[in-house]
């Protein structure tokens, strides 16, 4: 194998990794306000892809308005999900809330099944032109779209959490909800907001990756598993951690499949993940102290 192939492996690893990272940052948003893992995050991704398909391919709405409509709809679904299921629970435990999100995940898959059936849907690339060539390796336009969307989203989140009052309040909610409430923060409203934001980003991930990965009613949760891995490995709640870890996972998978064995690539990347967790129990970017403050 020459270096040209190496470059290609790294580039496709980055593409795979950016998909994981994009889904991973969605987990972080809800984690940041509630300390829970939202098992329905993959369904937001799936809905993003499938709703855009309906708007764009079936109703022939031009791409940009179709994407906007899709994101609005997915965001509303996220809000609805939180309001109807998590909101009414009094004094929920973390485990209770997680199980509720599992229930939502199954429910949303059921909804998607009855609307879109079992087919695999695909969308055209947003910019239909042949792949770019860099040093003999190729990279598709859609991968660039995913990267750009990912970078903008994470930059936005960074500024939101660091520099806005709302963002800081959301982080306070998860570290200590009682103290946050005592400080006058409306915890419940912020949780709703975090679901809206997570659904929006999940939908955006779905919209941008569907042309690469294709989409069907159960593909969201398969992809979410790797996104979850990226979020945990990076340190839950850390946007850049998720991106770093997602990229690391994607590139590892790609290199292992390219140089060692494609059959064991998932096992190897999971072993590396376990090893990193054992060495750094709070993920790459996480600190031990922060975790010990959290509930579960």
């Amino acid at each position: 194998m020459n270096w040209q192939n190496f470059l290609q492996l790294v580039l496709s690893g980055i593409t795979i990794g950016s998909i994981y990272a994009f889904i991973g940052i969605g987990f972080n948003i809800i984690y940041n306000t509630t300390s829970i893992i939202n098992f329905a995050q993959g369904e937001f991704v799936m809905l993003g892809g499938l709703i855009l398909y309906s708007f764009h391919q079936s109703f022939h709405i031009p791409l940009i308005p179709a994407i906007l409509l899709t994101l609005i709809l997915v965001t509303l679904i996220g809000i609805g999900m939180e309001r109807l299921t998590l909101h009414p629970v009094k004094n929920p435990t973390v485990l209770n809330m997680i199980i509720i999100t599992i229930g939502c995940s199954i429910f949303l898959k059921g909804v998607a099944l009855s609307i879109w059936g079992r087919e695999v849907y695909h969308l055209p690339f947003f910019f239909p032109r042949p792949p770019f060539r860099i040093g003999g390796a190729s990279i598709t336009t859609q991968s660039l779209v995913v990267w750009v969307a990912l970078i903008i989203s994470s930059a936005f989140l960074y500024f939101f959490y660091r520099f806005t009052l709302l963002g800081k309040a959301m982080r306070a909610c998860s570290v200590n909800p009682v103290a946050a409430r005592l400080m006058g923060i409306k915890v419940k409203s912020l949780i709703t907001l975090s679901f809206a934001l997570a659904a929006f980003l999940g939908g955006l991930a779905g919209v941008t990756i569907t042309p690469i990965s294709l989409m069907d009613y159960q593909r969201g949760s398969l992809l979410a598993l790797k996104g979850f891995a990226a979020a945990v490995l990076g340190g839950l709640g850390k946007e850049f951690g998720a991106i770093l870890a997602g990229m690391a996972l994607g590139i590892t998978e790609s290199l292992v499949a390219g140089y060692i064995s494609s059959g064991y690539k998932d096992a190897v990347s999971l072993l590396i993940l376990l090893f990193i967790l054992f060495v750094r129990p709070g993920g790459i970017m996480g600190s031990k102290e922060e975790i010990s403050l959290r509930e579960l």
């Binding site: 973390v94 979850f228 891995a229 945990v232 376990l274 054992f278 010990s292 579960l296």
Partner: peptide, 12 residues
């Protein structure tokens, strides 16, 4: 490991 990190390790 604690909480979600343990969940991830066992899941892995």
């Amino acid at each position: 490991l604690k909480g979600h990190y343990l969940a991830m390790a066992t899941l892995g």
